[in-house]
């Protein structure tokens, strides 16, 4: 008996063109669970790319509401969201349904430091889309502890970077820090006696750099989900938007890194 085909059926499949890319494992991608921390510019782009790529289950964490200055680079935010001071995670969870009605996004309106990150062990990939080093290091440490791949993105004007952390094989974000990172942390949480004041610098940002960095974050995530870890960035990649150059560098594992030491002691 010969097979029956329906004319035009190819165009009824949302992911037909994705399936034509040999290394993408669409079954795994569609059943993957992703954790996205930060719902700003990178977070918007990462969510958009994950959803268009076929990921259906996402947890999204952010503590902030939409402001007008977000509107130059955040695809899910609208002017009315800024007027109403709507929470970023709620808006993304709502608008993403316009891209794919089957998406399940769990929005968490909270600082990353205030939630129980034991849940990370239930996720396939963690994406860091923060605007500060403290939150990055916090999530990096927890993702490493629970053995979940962590993909961090950062931008500043027309430069950006992506770091891929694959526990227990690779160095982590903490391994790549130096005194300049610690000085920023000290400045952010400067103690003024009775209170701790939080210094939040306004970092230059625009959409083209943001979309490039977020796209690479998601591409590395899709490689991990599709079983292609060996093709991921090793270990950190810097993007220079003025010259349009990418440079990847290795980071050596710091034997005194507290993240690796705690993961080591966990094994006993």
């Amino acid at each position: 008996m010969s097979a029956l085909i329906k004319v035009g059926a190819i165009d009824d499949d949302r992911f037909d063109r994705s399936r034509r890319i040999g290394w993408l494992d669409m079954e795994r991608i569609q059943s993957a669970r992703c954790f996205v921390a930060g719902a700003g510019a990178l977070g918007n782009e990462v969510i958009k790319n994950l959803v268009l790529s076929g990921v259906k289950s996402i947890m999204l964490v952010d503590m902030d509401y939409v402001v007008r200055s977000n509107l130059n680079r955040c695809v899910f935010f609208r002017e009315e969201d800024a007027s109403r001071k709507s929470m970023k995670t709620d808006i993304i969870a709502k608008r993403v349904k316009e891209l794919n009605s089957e998406i399940r996004i769990t929005p968490i309106n909270s600082r990353i430091e205030e939630i129980d990150l034991g849940c990370l062990k239930d996720y396939d990939v963690v994406f860091g889309c923060f605007d500060n080093i403290g939150a990055r290091l916090h999530l990096n440490a927890h993702a490493y502890y629970y053995g979940v791949p962590y993909i961090d993105g950062g931008t500043d004007g027309i430069t950006g970077k992506i770091q891929v952390v694959l526990p227990p094989d690779t160095p982590c974000l903490q391994c790549a820090t130096n005194k300049t990172h610690m000085k920023i942390l000290e400045k952010r949480f400067s103690c003024t006696g009775a209170d701790i004041s939080i210094y939040e610098p306004k970092i230059p940002a625009e959409i083209t750099t943001t979309s490039i960095i977020a796209a690479i974050q998601v591409r590395e995530g899709l490689k991990i989900i599709s079983g292609k870890k060996e093709n991921c960035i090793r270990h950190v990649c810097y993007y220079n938007g003025l010259l349009n150059t990418f440079d990847s560098f290795e980071v050596s594992l710091d034997p005194m890194c507290p993240v690796h030491l705690s993961s080591y002691f966990k094994s006993f």
């Binding site: 950062g154 500043d156 430069t159």
Partner: peptide
């Protein structure tokens, strides 16, 4: 010496 971008 490379700047390490912090924004997101």
């Amino acid at each position: 010496l490379i700047p390490d971008p912090e924004g997101g």
